[in-house]
């Protein structure tokens, strides 16, 4: 964690697309009259989605006005939650888990890959394709180490497979989310160690 500030370069203005306005109305309608401010997080999230993955200052004001909130209240929310990006991100935004299980399983190696292929943490690569950030646990420890790229998890990475994913993304090729080794989901890495027989479980099993 570090101090989070609004980006020095901000767009002139921000407005939801007509489609998003409709969607926002639906979100606001979920809350009782007078409590519309409760819709702040989904609206900011949608604004971030619409605005290439980061939340500009005019969007914070726009959402605050939409919800009849003080600007400062919306800014509090936007700066509190680290999933709101206050500065531009790359087209493929890599969130790299550096928490203990991933770190033990080689997250440092993945960071090196990021530095080499993307650049310093928190900056957008020259071609605008990538940016990366170390984040806290993303909850896929069983497949450590892992990264999240935009909405997808890429798991069981090592330097080589991670480089391959990044290169494929840069080349515009399709990539397969999930474990990048032969493993299926979070099953044991060397194949099943139990439940190896299909059909009925053995009867009379003790402990």
């Amino acid at each position: 964690m570090s101090v989070r500030r609004l980006d020095p370069n901000q767009p002139e203005s921000f407005a939801f697309t007509a489609e998003n306005v409709e969607w926002a109305k639906g979100q606001i309608a979920k809350y009782p009259e007078g409590k519309q401010a409760s819709a702040i997080i989904p609206l900011l999230w949608r604004a971030q989605d619409q605005h290439d993955g980061w939340l500009p200052e005019p969007a914070i004001r726009y959402v605050a006005e939409m919800l009849d909130m003080e600007y400062i209240r919306a800014l509090e929310v936007a700066t509190f939650y680290t999933m709101f990006n206050l500065s531009p991100v790359g087209e493929h935004y890599v969130q790299l888990c550096g928490t203990t299980p991933c770190w033990l399983r080689g997250a440092d190696e993945l960071k090196e890959v990021c530095r080499k292929h993307i650049g310093p943490e928190g900056t957008v690569s020259a071609d605008g394709k990538f940016s990366w950030l170390e984040v806290e646990c993303l909850g896929a420890c069983v497949n450590a180490p892992m990264v999240q790229i935009n909405a997808d998890f890429f798991e069981d990475l090592d330097a080589a497979s991670f480089e391959r994913v990044l290169n494929d993304l840069r080349a515009g090729k399709d990539v397969k989310p999930g474990p990048q080794n032969e493993r299926h989901a979070s099953e044991p890495a060397g194949g099943l160690t139990s439940l190896t027989t299909a059909g009925q479980p053995e009867t009379g099993g003790g402990n």
Partner: peptide
């Protein structure tokens, strides 16, 4: 006049007005 707020979180929380 709710114009003061706390931006950021934890140790990095800061009291300020909007911009």
């Amino acid at each position: 006049v709710p114009e003061l707020g706390a931006i950021g979180r934890g140790e990095d929380m800061e009291i300020t007005t909007y911009l």
